[in-house]
Design a binder for these strands. Structure first.
Lengths: 128, 128
DNA sequence: TTTCTAAATAGTAATTGTTACTATTTAGAA
DNA sequence: TTCTAAATAGTAACAATTACTATTTAGAAA
């Protein structure tokens, strides 16, 4: 694969941001550095970075995909109040595919899991 | 809400089919009974039936939503070989939201979970 | 039973997130 | 320095879904 400044910058943005940006977020951020970058270029390179295993993809129902710099095994929760995406690390979840495989008899290899609820911060604000 | 023959038929189709149809599947099936039914009508009524809690929705990444007549708490697995959608009933999954809530400190209310792998049938065919 | 009105509809256009296409530019090997 | 395939910008196409608009209809009220 040939070197691409665009691709390097896209990876930099994802690696340096402390959130789970969409393609649109990354595109907007990229235009500050490379003003005439094409949206297609952003899509293509994010896809390549994902295929290379350098970033993770967070597929969400009926909303744009988000991307994640954290490569260790984890899942996500979206807060219904503040819409923030939280990383969820959990031993129980790490064992889930194997456990459910045994329980149901299918050979489960992977899983998409998204949790919905109210995050710790928003719970505090609510005065609960 | 006013009675609608269309809506009744859509519910019938979903309740009588032994798979997890897409809107397109239901639309095709509906046209056999009501040939000039509009796709928008199918979308709107499925959405209403879902809001009423008469059917469940299965949101899948980058594929059209599927719908489910089974209302009891359960999840789904998609076989990578045959692409069939299987219902997954599991006590561990039923307790997952509560368990993970305790583990991570957020108040998780619901979760979307989809498993991917090779189903029992396809595993047998493979001669494993 | 007829009239009336808001709900439901058919048909079409618009929207959103994404991929495909094409002419141009460019990394980097020869 | 030349050359070629990879990468790009810009645009069009796409798939799933929602919105819009004129027409039809359920069913309540007269």
């Amino acid at each position: 694969m040939r070197y691409s400044k665009h691709r390097e910058e896209i990876l930099n943005i994802i690696k340096n941001i402390d959130s789970h940006p969409t393609v649109e977020d990354i595109y907007i951020s990229m235009r500050e550095k490379i003003p005439n970058i094409s949206l297609g270029t952003v899509y293509r390179n994010i896809s390549i970075l994902y295929e290379m295993g350098l970033i993770k993809k967070i597929p969400l129902n009926n909303r744009p995909d988000r991307f994640d710099k954290t490569l260790t095994n984890h899942y996500h929760m979206i807060c219904k109040k503040c819409n923030q995406v939280y990383d969820i690390f959990s031993d129980e979840l790490n064992m889930l595919n194997k456990n459910i495989s045994n329980e149901v008899g299918h050979n489960i290899e992977s899983s998409d899991i998204t949790f919905y609820g109210i995050c710790h911060e928003c719970n505090l604000k609510e005065g609960k």
